[in-house]
Design a protein around this nucleic acid. Structure first.
Length: 394
DNA sequence: TCTGGGGTCCTGATGCCA
DNA sequence: TCTGTGGCATCAGGACCC
C-alpha cells in the first residue's frame, strides 16, 4: 500500500502573519475580552494592535495552537494559559471558532475525497489517504498527486496543507512533519534508517510523554536506539503488545489499512469549572451543571441517531486526580432523564468530600437508534416506572 | 502557575459460569 | 462436594491523540 498523510494548517488571519498569536483559552473569556472593544466586528476586520494580549488573560484554559513566532517564546499546544502569559505576555489571544473550524474541516476532507476516495478521518485537521488505486497516483513517487491535493485545498479553503508520502501510515505521518507548513515529503522504504532513525522517540505516533520518560531512563533517545535494541528486552520492559509494536514502529513496519468507515464507541460531555466546587457547599450549582451535561449528551445522541447502554461519570479533583465510574443499564437509551438517573447512581460510588474542578458524563456501548441490536435489547425488557432516586447533587 | 474537551484503545482486577 | 481452570463481561484507570 502507498499512503498519504495530509494535515491542514488551520486558521490563518492574514493581518496577523508574522505576529505571535495563541488560539485557545476559555472561549467565553476570550470572547469577553474581544467584545469589550469589538462588538460584532468579524475577526478578519480587527487591526492587529487592537487584539487582547495574553498578559491580560485571567482564568483557566489551555492553548489550542500557536503561530510560529509565538512558539519562539516556548509556548505551544496544550500549555496552560497562565503559564503561557508568563512566557509570552505580549502575544495576541484569539478565541477558537469551532463552527468555522468544522466547516473548513468538512471542505478539506470532501476536496480530498473527490480526488482520492479512500480516506481515513483522523480528527479535525488530519486524514490518511490510500492512493494505491488512484490513476496517476504513482507519478514522481506521489508528488504530482500531492501537489494537486494541496492546490485544490487552497482553492477551496485558502488553507495550506502538509503532506507525507510513504509505504504506510506510520511513516507517512512522520514524513508530513518534515516540511511544515505547506510541504510535501516523500519517504521510501529504504530511507527509514537515514531519515527516521535519527529522530527523537517522541516522533512516533503512539509514544507519548510517559513512554518517552521511560525510554530515556533506559538510555533510548532516538528511534534508531529503539530499532537497534533487542525485541524481547523491549517486551520485558513495556509488555508484550506495546514492546513489540514499538520495535516494529522503529523499523518502519506498519500494516494497518486505511479505514474509511467507523462507528463511534462513546459520546461524552465534560466541563471544567471556573473555580473548584464542593459537593455539599456548591450543591445547587453542581446539580445544575450535572443535569445540563446529561441533557447535552442526550441531545448529541439524538442528533446523531445513537442510543447507549453504559452510562458513566468523570470527576477531576482539585489535585488533578481523576475518578470514573460507570453503570451498564438494561436498555439502550438517549433520554436525558434516564442518563441523569444512572449517572446519579454512579455518583454515589465516588468520594465527594473533596473539591472538584471538572465533571463529565459519558454514554458508551452505542448502537444505531432503531437498529436490530437496539430493538432486540429494549423490546420485551420489563418497563418499570422507576422513581428517580435522589443523589447528592439533586 | 498549572494543565480543555472530545475521543480511542489497552490493561489489570474481579466476579460469574461452565 | 470440592477444587481448579479458562473464558467472558464488567469496571476502573491510564496512555495517547487531535
Amino acid at each position: 500500500m502507498d499512503a498519504f498523510f495530509a494535515s491542514v494548517e488551520l486558521l490563518r488571519y492574514p493581518q496577523l502573519k508574522g505576529l505571535p498569536v495563541v488560539i485557545g483559552g476559555g472561549r467565553r473569556k476570550v470572547d469577553e475580552m474581544l467584545r469589550e472593544r469589538f462588538e460584532g466586528v468579524p475577526l478578519s476586520k480587527i487591526p492587529p494592535d487592537a487584539f487582547p494580549l495574553l498578559k491580560d488573560y485571567v482564568g483557566r484554559g489551555v492553548i489550542t495552537t500557536a503561530t510560529y513566532p509565538a512558539r519562539q517564546f516556548g509556548v505551544g499546544s496544550a500549555m496552560g494559559m497562565m503559564k503561557a502569559a508568563k512566557l509570552a505576555p505580549h502575544a495576541i489571544v484569539l478565541p477558537v471558532d469551532f463552527d468555522e473550524v468544522r466547516r473548513l474541516s468538512r471542505t478539506f476532507k470532501s476536496v480530498i475525497r473527490e480526488i482520492a476516495p479512500v480516506v481515513e478521518d483522523r480528527g479535525i485537521d488530519e486524514v490518511y489517504i490510500d492512493f494505491t488505486d488512484v490513476p496517476g497516483g504513482q507519478r514522481e513517487g506521489g508528488r504530482v498527486l500531492a501537489r494537486l491535493i494541496q492546490k485544490s485545498i487552497f482553492e477551496a479553503t485558502q488553507l495550506t496543507c502538509s503532506i507525507g508520502v510513504a509505504p504506510n501510515k506510520l511513516i507517512a505521518k512522520m514524513a508530513s512533519e518534515f516540511n511544515k507548513p505547506n510541504g510535501i515529503s516523500i519517504v521510501y522504504e529504504d530511507d527509514v534508517q537515514k531519515q527516521i532513525w535519527p529522530l527523537p522517540v517522541r516522533k512516533i505516533n503512539g509514544i507519548g510523554p510517559k513512554s518517552e520518560v521511560k525510554l530515556h531512563k533506559l538510555h533510548l533517545h532516538t528511534i534508531g536506539d529503539i530499532a537497534k535494541s533487542d525485541r524481547e528486552w523491549l517486551v520485558d520492559n513495556f509488555g508484550q503488545s506495546y514492546g513489540a509494536w514499538m520495535h516494529d514502529a522503529a523499523w518502519g513496519r506498519d500494516d494497518r489499512p486505511v479505514v474509511t468507515e467507523s462507528e463511534p464507541v462513546s459520546m461524552s460531555r465534560e466541563t471544567t469549572f471556573e473555580r473548584d466546587l464542593h459537593a455539599v457547599r456548591d450543591r445547587a450549582e453542581l446539580g445544575a451543571i450535572f443535569t445540563d451535561l446529561c441533557v447535552r449528551v442526550a441531545e448529541d445522541l439524538q442528533r446523531k441517531g445513537y442510543v447507549g447502554k453504559t452510562i458513566g461519570i468523570k470527576l477531576r479533583y482539585d489535585d488533578f486526580k481523576t475518578a470514573t465510574r460507570d453503570l451498564t443499564i438494561e436498555q439502550f437509551t438517549d433520554d436525558a432523564k434516564t442518563i441523569r438517573r444512572a449517572a446519579g447512581q454512579c455518583l454515589k460510588r465516588v468520594d465527594l468530600s473533596r473539591r472538584l474542578r471538572l465533571l463529565g458524563v459519558r454514554v458508551g456501548k452505542l448502537a444505531k437508534s432503531g437498529s436490530e441490536e437496539h430493538l432486540a435489547a429494549n423490546v420485551g425488557a420489563v418497563l418499570r416506572a422507576e422513581e428517580p432516586t435522589p443523589d447528592l447533587f439533586s
